[in-house]
Amino acid sequence: MTTPTTGSVALVTGASSGIGEATALELANAGCTVYAAARRVERMAHLIESGIRPIPMDVTDDVSMQEGVNKIIADTGRIDVLVNNAGYGSYGALEDVPMDEARYQFEVNVFGAARLTQLVLPHMRATRSGKIVNITSMGGRIHTPLGAWYHATKFALEAISDCLRLEVKPFGIDVIVIEPGGIRSEWAGIAADKVRAVSSAGAYAPQGNAVADSLSSESNQRRSSPPELIARTIRKAVTARKPNTRYAVGFGAKPMIFLHDVLPDRTFDAVMRRATGIPST
């Protein structure tokens, strides 16, 4: 069973490319009034043709988030759907990654989503309805080499989502986690650049170069799923009367989570080393 989305107001962050852009288009096609938020508003100009309303928003800037939410409320009086999609992958050996970069990763991937949720919740509680969709990753359930800080943010967002789901249930609000696998987007290239910047030389160079090459390989891009697959899943979730709490979707998501859950830790470690081409010694 599904509920109609016509007339619903949706805010999608990180909407200038990839999953965010595809989701904005998918929800607009479903009849939502969609506000597409990102730092680079000029990259969203083409979305206006689809009836989408681009707004500037930096999820590490509290004033920016407040202004964005206030504009939507002033325009429409409500926010029915929040898609916390803004995020990026910062890879590198734990020892190599500067703490400022680690903190920034949390600011974008965790604290930005949490703060925006705080700003939106009073308006959802007022209508006793709403859907909060947090885009984590299969990386919120598994671990990969040199991804300590990235995985830490995604594990954290998974935990926040579970606790929030309990808190807001009395107000008729659903919290939904989307766990993408490999997706064709800018993400892999950014993660590869990050690991090369900090771990392509020194003690972790063999691992760093192997992981960077794996992330940026043509075969990795070919196997990856299109962002539209995730967008369709988000539409399915926000239109369902009783959505699942989690949707693992996209290349590798379900099998990798399954292997992580059933294999001993050291066996899964070996699988990850082989998958990324890391030398055994």
Rank of each mutant, 00 (worst) to 15 (best):
V120I: 15
A210F: 02
Y88V: 13
M57F: 00
P145I: 01
L229G: 00
N244W: 04
M124S: 09
W149H: 11
T60D: 12
I176K: 00
A126Y: 00
P279A: 12
S199V: 03
A192S: 06
I183G: 12
E42T: 15
A237I: 08
A201W: 03
Q66T: 14
Q221A: 10
G18N: 06
S17P: 14
R141M: 12
G130Q: 02
R184S: 05
M44L: 01
D174S: 10
F155S: 04
V9N: 03
N84F: 13
S161V: 14
D80E: 03
A126D: 07
Q105C: 10
R141D: 02
G250W: 12
L121P: 07
R184K: 13
A203K: 15
T153M: 11
A205H: 02
Q221R: 13
R273A: 02
A114V: 14
S161I: 15
Y91V: 09
C32K: 11
D213Q: 11
G92K: 05
T136D: 01
E218V: 08
K254W: 10
E167W: 05
R273N: 06
I52F: 02
K242Q: 06
T13L: 07
M272P: 00
M138K: 09
G139H: 04
L157M: 08
E95L: 11
T276F: 07
T60R: 07
K71Q: 14
I142A: 03
I278R: 14
T276L: 06
P54I: 09
D261C: 08
A156F: 09
I135W: 00
R266H: 06
E67P: 00
M272Y: 04
I79N: 01
Q221T: 00
S161D: 05
Q207A: 15
G77R: 04
M65I: 03
C163W: 02
G252P: 01
G181H: 07
Y150W: 14
S129F: 02
P4W: 09
G20V: 11
A22L: 06
F155I: 13
M124W: 10
K236A: 13
D58H: 02
P243N: 12
A212M: 07
K71I: 06
S137R: 05
A45D: 15
S216H: 02
F111R: 01
E42Y: 13
A201K: 15
A37L: 09
K169V: 01
Q105E: 13
G139W: 09
D193T: 11
I48Q: 06
I160F: 14
T2Q: 04
T245S: 02
T2M: 04
G18E: 07
I135Y: 00
E179K: 15
N70Y: 01
A102G: 03
R274Q: 10
E179D: 03
F111Y: 11
A201Q: 10
V271I: 12
